[in-house]
Design a protein around this nucleic acid. Structure first.
Lengths: 339, 339
DNA sequence: CTGTTAGCGCGTTCAA
DNA sequence: TTGAACGCGCTAACAG
């Protein structure tokens, strides 16, 4: 594996290194013939410039980091898919960092990534995240940050989210219109902006139909599967159980589904369920659940586009914009009714 | 954002850059006091060495690439999870490249990644991949390669796979023991090593019970959802349809499930189904499917460990080893029977 | 149009 | 024990 670099080509051709460099960049300073010679030899030797040597000079790595709570989750997997597709297009490279929904890890990554390994970061914060100084420290070092989905509104940077309030309002309305009077809201964490927006949409939905908001029906399930399962189980075991569940994330919907089976409650006869979900699950389950589907792939693409645009503009700071995409409500209850 | 580098510390302390460098590496050449001073100032200024400057000197980036067909797929998502967890532990960084199951893209990545952006590659080939020169070219450039799951056996490098033959044999046996006589095997592509091994296990299962192998029951569905759906539909619409389906991957199982619903065939009464799957689907579906679950997380971890071990040994080439992990068969037919 | 020079930030001789 | 000098591979200012 003989290394081939600019020097190899330069000496072989009897020209200087910088000539080769310029020729390969199609600089106007170099004659056609020289370019020809250089380019053809480069191709023959399969020369590829070392990206990190250029990085050092140009002060840009063309690497970006994606920091997310988890990957075995259809939403985030689809986001990465979107990010990667735009990255290929724009010649950026995608590094993955998983926080496993721990603030400690998120912090660690943010500190570490100030070292110049990457030019920018796209991230969704953990349910534990309550401060945002660690994110500020990144931007201070000139690392551009785009937040998506689970964002911190306090920090000034580009953000890509979905219409959580409106779609939750519609979802709640959907349940009410199908006769639900006692709707429980399964929450993840009150630190999470999206959770609060969804909760607010849910509350507004109740309000619209003059249903009093009952705080005891808002249930924080946390991000631990087993715990969540137990909490939902005790909720649905109660004699005066709710007649509907609004699951703020897919995982909680799945647990609800499992609990219903365990307790021999049938959906939607005994309990109606609506949830945020990106899995094909809604099609597969029997009966299918009503769902709110976020445009995960588009979120990834959009967030990446915003980041790359800002990086390429080389201003060293990021435009403070707020992009809101629309989620898709798939109401399966009415379909169910007509059966 | 004032950049802090070795020089910053050196001038501040009135020592030379190399002294600082050595002190931070805890070199024996530097006095305790100097080290103390350097380290504490470095901490105070939050100094972090530029990784790519070191790369250039040390000739290692500590970046690795993971090349996979898709990410919105529980198996690969779990693999990445495993890879990432080991990477964190070993201080490596994970770049993601998605081929979307196109050989053209795989080739492109392999050519590109010879440039020194990464030290090593972990990959699962596409269903279209029929040659392996592109992989050889990587190793020739000193890039270590570990193949996993969808491997090329022709190439000499480390490989991590599962016991596809045995688990498929067991799966087939499970179907036969539950009364199936006409088992269809849904294949992805005959270019794929795992597919062929699974098929061989299936054939061996039939053979063991003296059921003649019927080539017309081996159906290549390709990797396109819609096509696969049609193929399965016509298979199950036939008057003499098979009494069981062995789906070689999760996607095909899902399509089978959907087709059954479409045709009002009930599982497992009308058609028994077993499949390779990593989704929680088996628990959620009603009725649940029998599944073979590959230890995806462990595959990721194992493959990463092998890669990092070889990278750290700095031999410039990789040990040619074949690691085979065990899959887990969850036979739900017997459970079903006792209901 | 081409070459010389000077770094990017770091690690590593080799002298002092 | 420290520091000066060099080079990893590349780009860019400037001189010719």
């Amino acid at each position: 594996m003989p290394k081939v670099n600019l020097k190899t080509i330069a000496t072989e051709l009897g020209v200087s290194i910088s000539t080769v460099s310029k020729a390969l960049q199609d600089s106007y300073e170099i004659s056609k013939e020289t370019k020809q010679k250089v380019v053809s030899l480069a191709k023959k030797l399969n020369f590829q410039p070392n990206p990190y040597a250029s990085s050092l000079r140009r002060n840009q790595t063309r690497n970006i980091a994606v920091i997310i709570p988890e990957i075995a989750n259809n939403f985030f997997a689809l986001v990465i898919n979107g990010v990667e597709s735009v990255a290929r297009e724009k010649n950026y490279h995608v590094l993955i960092y998983l926080t496993h929904d721990e603030y400690k890890k998120e912090l660690e990554f943010c500190e570490y990534l100030q070292n110049g390994r990457i030019d920018g970061v796209m991230m969704s914060v953990t349910t534990e995240t309550q401060t945002h100084e660690h994110i500020g420290r990144l931007t201070e070092k000139g690392i551009l940050v785009v937040l998506f989905d689970r964002v911190c509104h306090e920090i000034e940077t580009a953000k890509v989210t979905t219409d959580d309030f409106v779609s939750s309002l519609n979802a709640t309305e959907h349940l009410i219109q199908n006769g639900c009077k006692k709707i429980a809201y399964l929450a993840l964490s009150s630190h999470l902006s999206i959770d609060n927006k969804r909760k607010a949409g849910y509350a507004e939905g109740l309000h619209k139909y003059n249903i009093p908001f009952d705080a005891s029906l808002v249930i924080e399930c946390g991000n631990n599967e087993n715990e969540a399962h137990q909490i939902i189980k005790s909720l649905l075991s109660s004699p005066n159980r709710p007649d509907a569940i609004f699951a703020s994330v897919e995982k909680l919907a799945i647990e609800t589904y499992l609990v219903c089976r365990e307790l021999s409650l049938s959906i939607p006869q005994d309990v109606k369920v609506i949830c945020f979900a990106n899995l094909k699950i809604a099609d597969l389950l029997n009966p299918p659940l009503s769902t709110i589907t976020q445009p995960a792939f588009e979120i990834g693409k959009k967030a990446a586009r915003v980041l790359f645009r800002n990086l390429d503009s080389k201003r060293g700071s990021i435009e403070n914009e707020n992009i809101v995409l629309k989620s898709l409500l798939i109401p399966r209850l009415s379909t169910q009714k007509s059966d």
